[in-house]
Amino acid sequence: MNASIFLINTLFELYLMVVILRIWLQLAKADFYNPLSQFVVKATHPLVAPMRRVLPAIGSLDTASVVLAILVVVAKLIAISLVAGAAIDPVVIALFSLVAVIKKAGFMLFWMLIIRAILSWFNNGYNPIVMVIEQLTEPVMAPVRKIIPPIGGLDLSVMLVLIGMNFLNLLLSQYIPFWANV
């Protein structure tokens, strides 16, 4: 049973990350022709395209992709509940799903910032993955760099953003149900 739950959780989490990347790539207006962007679009298009006919975008936010991300978590929770033989509470699943999508996006931002910081030490040439990571994280980094510019070639903005994200996570875990449990 644990192996089944692990497999279900892993597959749904991986697809959730791809769907969140699609939302993020569109919001950041990242390079559509990048190989990573092409993979994300091709992996999510079969489910997003029909939903777009019903759910129009709100500004630059693709609501079909947001709804798909929430539905992926709902499907994961229902599948795990069925395998584990647990009760299915629609209200709990709905709240948990919304919180899970937000936390997964924050988790992905955290690791992209870490990867960007590490790659900045070693990357000397053009790499399409590095370019997408920079395009995705720059909207978060640029406002912080305006407040604290790089000092002697050392960019402290990543550290400040990570501290701010950790503070926000701890603050939200006190006031939002399920936040600490996701």
Rank of each mutant, 00 (worst) to 15 (best):
60 S>W: 08
178 F>I: 05
154 L>I: 15
160 L>Q: 00
142 A>F: 10
139 P>T: 08
79 A>W: 02
45 H>A: 14
155 D>N: 05
119 L>I: 07
135 Q>N: 04
5 I>P: 01
174 Q>H: 14
37 S>Y: 10
16 L>E: 11
41 V>P: 00
125 G>Q: 07
58 I>F: 15
58 I>K: 13
39 F>A: 10
113 L>I: 04
80 I>Y: 00
141 M>P: 01
94 A>G: 12
67 V>F: 15
53 R>H: 07
35 P>M: 06
129 I>P: 02
85 G>Q: 02
74 V>W: 07
16 L>G: 10
129 I>Q: 04
46 P>W: 11
69 A>N: 12
60 S>Y: 08
148 I>E: 01
41 V>R: 11
23 I>P: 12
108 M>Y: 00
79 A>V: 03
84 A>T: 01
31 D>C: 06
33 Y>P: 11
2 N>H: 06
41 V>T: 14
49 A>T: 13
6 F>D: 08
141 M>R: 10
23 I>C: 14
162 L>T: 03
57 A>E: 06
78 I>K: 05
99 V>Q: 09
27 L>S: 05
86 A>Q: 13
37 S>M: 09
56 P>R: 08
156 L>Q: 02
173 S>I: 07
72 V>N: 13
57 A>P: 02
129 I>G: 03
93 I>G: 13
122 F>L: 10
172 L>C: 12
135 Q>F: 03
110 F>S: 04
138 E>I: 04
131 M>I: 09
34 N>H: 09
161 V>L: 04
103 K>I: 12
101 V>D: 13
170 L>P: 01
117 A>M: 11
32 F>A: 14
152 G>S: 03
